[in-house]
Design a binder for these strands. Structure first.
Lengths: 348, 348
DNA sequence: TTCTTTCACTCAAGCGCTTTAGCGATCACC
DNA sequence: GGTGATCGCTAAAGCGCTTGAGTGAAAGAA
């Protein structure tokens, strides 16, 4: 008796065909719910397939023009910037939930910069690896939509504003402008007049939207001590900017941080400088996470459902793959969760 | 003139063959560095391929037995547990660095639990999707090694202890036991006698290794006030356990947290209870990240290079795919970075 | 009865690549 | 100058699947 050495051969349609006593084509028809076989044969084939533990070879499927059953996701970040970030993992988790239902795989890649990202798309396209991609961190002047158009690669842009110039792309976005307006509204009502926005990467589209909105809101109210400062999202820059603005002659009474990490660093820095939060300065974090409840005072934060965001994006992409039209869908505006870090501005 | 509508057909080897005036086989030989073509032909073919922007179709490659040029990575976590965690992103980033060099893709999937994870491996295997997998969070009594053996899927276990029962698997691990011993050494030298270890998930192999080591170290020194408490790694449980142990009649003077998130929550809780860190209680976080320098006092932490960890794991896997032998490689023991949260035990 | 439809299924080609077998030409050798 | 290697290349099969064309039988229409 030969040792059971070979690691379990994968069954193919041919095996099924033989066992079920039909041709391979019949098996294909049966298994794909296509007409051309009787119900009784279809059932028999299905049973045999199940019993054999058969699964279609994605390679063979892809080769015969069915697509790779895979969607791509590229994260363009220098390795050392991959810090504490709950957003992406949650986003991906939501994406997976939807993709898993349809047995779609997620090909994931981390690269250094946008140029590399574009190269990855080209490669994936040329290698037939993905049927579509999810694009994150849209920029002002983003080369990716054009490229994806050129390649004819279905894509949904996550977090972008609607883009009429690329009718082939779907977009899933939250209304940053509305959220920013609401935040400014709230702070203004609390008596804050000097507000600094410690923003994220200046190249990102949503950063610019927030900055523009803040400026507009300030203008509308005639506030002069309002500004945005862009950073790289790191705790280090968050702290540095905080130190700088709080050290100015007329320091702001409210700070809006574009992520939770900087907000945390900012609070620590404020404390070091002798500013008490929220008595001397209010703090709002744009992104809620466990972090916000891990220090006292608890951070007031803009909260959104990142997992659902991911689900929505994935659903749009599958719709696109099914031949549906490109759409622009807006997810709910993030809600401001008021905790302990915001309060009335100290009377001057 | 017809509109340039079709989204750029992908060039195939046939195209190259035609342009270069040779057969497809010759192209294959030339492009794969195989003997059978003259250097001059090889060059010509290479040039044509380059000029056409040709890339091999992974599907076709996979079908003709070359493997899928993809490796798989499953993260088994309930969606709501995907919190703030820099480790995985860094790990993945290291993995990618190595995989990208060889144009290997990373198929990534988040699932709920171990059973789902096993199902994913089976599916990937049956669908011919991956050539190998990286396994994280090894457990005590882990079903995965057996499964991967059965499927004949090359794999490297990340963070496991050497496992003689599965000679087909490579293992990349850090010596938790050594690190734990060092930490206890340090704390003991500072005068600490009552130490509580707020551990992670009890099912994880490394959790058990740390617990065992702590017990052994305590036993060796005759310390009685030493214990480990397992948690789910969340800030909530970290805080809860902290509250409980610090509220006991003879509270510990040192706390070792199995991750940075719990350590942070623990420090906050200690402060609330009126314990000053490190004067009343010292804190060590097992995992360094930006978080540890985001609160005062800065957290003393065990630091390791997660990116390099990922690289190592990926290198082992590619070696395995190249037909190399399974190996067990040990990455450097995490180093204790002493910051502000550890100090001498208060004299009683 | 004969002709057409429909049905259930089979045949065979093809997707893009690898690989084995084979073939003619050149070369070396005794 | 014949024998055998070696070289550079081509032909063709095969990987597992899909799909359009084809086929034989049963059913329905005339």
């Amino acid at each position: 008796m030969p040792a059971k050495r070979s690691p379990a051969r994968r069954p193919t349609m041919k095996d099924i065909a033989r066992r079920a006593g039909v041709s391979e084509s019949a098996v294909s028809f049966a298994l794909n719910g296509r007409p051309g076989v009787s119900e009784v044969t279809r059932d028999r084939v299905r049973r045999v397939a199940e019993q054999l533990g058969w699964r279609p070879s994605t390679a063979a499927r892809a080769l015969s023009g069915e697509g790779a059953a895979t969607i791509g996701f590229v994260l363009a970040r220098p390795a050392d910037t991959l810090g504490v970030d709950s957003f992406f993992l949650q986003l991906v988790s939501g994406i997976q939930e939807v993709l898993a239902e349809r047995h779609l795989g997620l090909l994931f890649q981390v690269v250094e910069d946008l140029a590399d990202e574009c190269a990855v798309y080209r490669r994936w396209w040329a290698e037939h690896r993905v049927d579509g991609v999810l694009v994150v961190d849209p920029r002002t002047d983003d080369p990716r939509p054009d490229l994806l158009d050129e390649l004819g690669l279905p894509a949904v842009v996550i977090g972008g504003a609607p883009d009429e110039r690329h009718p082939g792309l779907s977009t899933v976005w939250a209304d940053d402008a509305g959220a920013m307006a609401a935040v400014v509204d709230g702070l203004h009502a609390l008596g804050h007049r000097r507000i600094v926005h410690i923003a994220g990467l200046s190249g990102l589209a949503h950063t610019q939207r927030r900055i523009r909105t803040l400026r507009a809101e300030a203008g509308r109210r005639g506030l002069t001590g309002v500004e945005s400062v862009t950073t790289d999202y790191s705790d280090a820059e968050g702290a540095a900017v905080t130190r700088r603005v709080l050290g100015a002659p007329a320091p702001p009474t409210a700070l809006i941080y574009d992520n939770d990490v900087m907000a945390l660093a900012g609070v620590a820095t404020a404390a070091e400088l002798g500013f008490s939060v929220p008595a001397d300065v209010s703090v709002v974090a744009w992104e809620d996470s466990a972090l916000c409840r891990m220090v006292r005072p608890w951070l007031s934060a803009l909260s959104r459902d990142s997992v659902e965001f991911g689900r929505t994006a994935a659903r749009e992409l599958t719709a696109l793959l099914d031949g549906g039209p490109a759409r622009t869908v807006r997810v709910p505006v993030p809600r401001l969760i008021e905790r302990e870090s915001t309060g009335a501005a100290r009377a001057r």
